[in-house]
Structures are given as structure tokens and as C-alpha cells.
Amino acid sequence: MRGANSLPILAALTGVALLSLMDAFMKDAALAIGALTAAWLRAVFGTALVLPLWLATGARRVPRDALALHLERGVVSCFMAVTFFFALTKLPLAETIAISFVAPLVTLYLARVLLGEAVTRAAVGGSLLGFAGTIVIVGDRLGSAGFDADTAWGLAAILLSSMLYAYNFIVMRRQSQVAGPVEVAVFHSGVAALLLALAAPFFFVRPDAGSAGYIAISAVLTVAGAMTLAWAYARAEAQKLVPMEYSGFLWASLFGWLFFREGVSPVTVFGTALIVAGCWIAARRQDTEQAVV
């Protein structure tokens, strides 16, 4: 990675790290007050944080096409977040992140169908290698921990969240072409806050001071991560940036141990090595490389 071409990749890696740390704080909060309450409060705090910034930097009248994309991604992201945070309450942090890596693999082909992006051999190879690493990790986890009702619910939730996440990448790419990072962040949090508010009377649990603090920190990390990723996706193709998501496992392993003392097995280390290799291969893709499709 050299010159200006490396900046979107570095931004994407930074955004993933910020959001991985957010996941750790949100897991703690979701275990205490439930995934729905935690997700709603994060969206409310995030909106309160970024809305004044958007207004202060000259909020524009949002065109209809941009508004449609903001609403679409807001709805998708809302359900994606709720199912993901629910999965975090049933599965370890690192394994949850690992399973979610099916999303970048799906996104490569959605980018071809919906965005018209060419899929290169390096992009496919890097993503498949990273995905193979996740299979190694998940297989080790399920083999050692057994399979119970909580595991089943957690897997169902993270698989649904991953499919929504894959589509979210595509909408993010379109969204970043018509709106700046601050505007993207405003609607990302705002739409989710309004949508979850409709159901809040039925699920809301009053948080204690610790949980509220963790959710506030999560909101800051969410806004920072969303803005960083929006900047990156405005400057590089989705297939080039999506494999950077695999680096999230490294952060999830670290934060899982720091927050919850979740260990990492030798098999997980091997799987992580495959993931890092996949990221490296995809990042070195040359613009002149021949596309597969």
C-alpha cells in the first residue's frame, strides 16, 4: 500500500478498530439491560452527539435520492445492530465477530450485481482465505463448547445480522457518493433512534450508571467509526475495503480478553493468521489486475 491509495484502507482499518471496541462496551451493556434497550440508547446518544456537529458545519437540505439512501441504510442498520447485540449476549465476542465475516464474502458479489464493480481474482482469493480462517475458528469453538439453546439463538441472530451487514456495505457505498461523513452519521443514528423509539415502551429497561456510561462511550465510538468508514468508502471500491473487516477479529480477541477474560485457543490463532493473510492479499490488489467477472 503506497501513497493516496493506502489512505482509504488505513481509514477502513481504523473504523473497524473503533467499532470493535464499541462492540465490547455494548456487549457489557446488553448483558445488563438487554440488546434492544442498549441499541436504542446508543442510537439516541449518537444522534445527540453528531446532530449539533452537522448543524454547526452547515447542514444542507438533503436531496430526495440521498434521503432515500439514508432511510434505507438506517432501517437496515437498526435491525442489523439489534440482532448483532443479541448475538453478543449468547456468544463470545471474538467468535461472534468471526461468524459475521460471512458478510464481506457476500458483499463482494452483491457489489458486482448492484454496483457493477468488477470482482478480481485477488479480491476473491483474499476474501475466501479470510473466510476459511473464520470457519477454522468457529469450528473449534463449537467443537469445544458444545451446542445448546443459547448457542443456537446466538448463531441464528449473527447469521441474520451478517446478511443485513452485507447489504449495508452496498448501501454505504452508494450513500457515501452523495453525502458527507457527518451527514451519514446523523442519519445512521437518527433513523435507528426513531425506529426503536416506536417499540421502546414494550422493552425499555432503565440502565444503571455503569451501563449508561458504557452506552455513551459506544455512541462516541459508533459515530467516529461510521464517519471514518464513510470517508473510506467514498474513496475506494467496496470490494477493496470490505476485506479490511477481517481485521476486526484481532481487536475482538483483545477486547474479549480485556473485558470478559475470553481466551483465544491455538486454533483461533491459526484462523486469525489466515484472516490477516486474506486482508493483505486483497489490499495489494492492483487496479490493472484482470477481473474475474
Results as ranks from 00 to 15, higher is better:
T272Y: 05
V138S: 02
D208A: 11
T272F: 07
F169V: 06
A238K: 07
S161G: 14
D148A: 12
V293N: 08
G130E: 09
A35V: 00
T83P: 07
V264G: 08
L93C: 05
L49R: 04
A35Y: 00
A232R: 08
A24G: 11
A30R: 00
M172D: 06
P266Y: 12
V220R: 03
L229N: 05
Q239I: 10
D28V: 05
P266G: 09
L115R: 02
E95S: 13
W251M: 15
S189C: 12
V267G: 02
L19K: 13
M163R: 02
Y246W: 03
V113P: 03
V62E: 09
D148P: 01
S253F: 05
M1P: 15
G256M: 06
F147N: 03
A157H: 13
A68D: 04
A157C: 13
T120W: 01
D65V: 00
W54G: 07
F187C: 03
A145P: 11
Y214K: 15
G143A: 04
Y214G: 10
T288Y: 14
A219S: 14
F86N: 09
D150K: 04
L221D: 04
H70Y: 01
L93M: 04
R42N: 12
R73W: 12
D23C: 09
L71Q: 14
C279P: 10
A216T: 12
L164S: 11
T228Q: 02
G74K: 02
Q239M: 04
S176F: 09
V269Q: 05
V75E: 06
L13C: 14
K90P: 07
V184M: 07
A277G: 01
P52V: 08
P201V: 02
R73F: 12
Q177E: 15
A238T: 14
A199D: 01
L142G: 02
F203N: 02
F84Q: 11
R112A: 11
L93E: 00
F45I: 14
D23Y: 08
A192K: 00
L258A: 15
A81F: 04
L10E: 07
S77G: 13
A216G: 05
L241W: 03
L13H: 07
L155K: 10
A32F: 01
P8R: 05
H188P: 00
T151H: 04
A156G: 15
A157V: 14
G263C: 07
I137T: 07
R112G: 06
N168A: 13
Q175A: 08
L110F: 12
L160V: 14
S144K: 15
S77P: 03
L254N: 13
G256Y: 10
L71G: 15
L105A: 09
L36E: 09
V136A: 08
P63S: 08
A230W: 09
A282G: 10
K240E: 02
V264R: 01
V182S: 03
G3M: 00
M172S: 13
Q286Y: 07
S20V: 11
Q286T: 14
I135W: 06
T288I: 13
A32H: 05
D28L: 12
S144Q: 11
E72H: 09
L108F: 08
G154T: 10
W251G: 15
R173N: 09
F85P: 12
G130Q: 03
A157K: 11
H188C: 05
A179G: 02
W40E: 14
L88F: 04
R285Y: 12
V138M: 10
G154F: 10
A87H: 12
I33S: 05
